[in-house]
Computed example of a mutant assay.
Amino acid sequence: MTRTARSRSAEPAGSPPLREWLRQLPLLGGQAPPFDPATAPGEPLELLVEWLHEAVAAGVPEPHALTLATVDAAGRPDARVLVLKDVADSALWIASGAGSPKGRQLATVPVAALVFYWPQQGRQVRVRGRVRVADAEHAARDFLQRPVHGRAESLLERQSRPLDESHLSDEFADVEDLVHLEPAVVASAWTVWAVDASRVEFWQSSPDGQHLRLRYSRAEDGGYDRQLLRP
């Protein structure tokens, strides 16, 4: 294990105290498009797709990127950024290796939270719900759409392991050759998860601080209750 010395200060010489500097940075803002919660659709994922298309049209970089939050068996949280794979069957679909930290956590505690943030539009969307595993056919289809390098790495099943001299060995080259020779080979551990949209909140900023917050909550009949929240 490599150890590093603890820095005495995180602030560049001559700069204002970090606390004061952070207070001077712009607040959540952006150019918010028109949004009337009264005319929002009854299904939250329909509105999510609308907002996603608007983010693309506005030139938001990587609008399909999201933060996935999970917890382990001890209740310790984890979060990382990945990409949205699909929106279908009242769920948002994501993918990774089952042996990755996120995969192990989702297997142990099958609940998750997702956050989209589009700063250019002053918008974010929060999703929370239970997680289920897609069938093998769905996972194989997603895996085969990945770049060759990504498929080779997934076949080795070494995500998040310490990086050492083994990455320079012939092991990866052999697997990459296999991917080229057998383009239909699929990593058995590759998994697609569906995060159920049991609670979805749409947040849009306002210059006067009267931010709009519209929350959808799954009702007992399978539909959704909608409620405006205070900023």
Rank of each mutant, 00 (worst) to 15 (best):
P44W: 05
D225T: 15
W190D: 05
R123M: 09
A40H: 05
P34Q: 10
A107V: 08
H53C: 10
L47A: 01
L84W: 03
E201N: 05
L22K: 09
R6K: 11
A152W: 00
L82Y: 01
G222W: 04
A88P: 03
V131Q: 03
P110D: 10
Q120H: 11
F172W: 02
L144A: 04
L178A: 07
P110N: 09
P147G: 02
E176V: 09
D225R: 15
A184V: 14
V127M: 02
D78W: 07
G14M: 11
A88D: 15
A73W: 01
L155K: 01
V83Y: 13
H180N: 09
E220I: 12
M1I: 10
L47E: 06
V192C: 12
F202W: 04
A98I: 14
P101Y: 04
R230V: 13
H180I: 08
I94M: 08
E157K: 02
L144E: 10
L68S: 03
D177N: 07
P33G: 10
G97F: 03
E54H: 13
Q105K: 00
D36P: 00
V175W: 01
G97S: 14
P16W: 08
F202S: 02
G97M: 10
R6W: 11
L47Y: 00
R141H: 11
L212W: 02
A194I: 07
A136S: 11
R132F: 05
P119W: 08
Q227H: 12
D135W: 03
D86H: 04
E11D: 15
L92S: 09
G209S: 05
S188Q: 15
L45N: 04
A152L: 03
P61D: 10
A73S: 07
Y216S: 02
L68F: 01
D225V: 14
P44S: 06
H180P: 00
Q120C: 07
D164I: 10
A58Q: 06
V115W: 06
A65E: 12
G129E: 06
L168I: 07
A189Q: 14
A65Y: 07
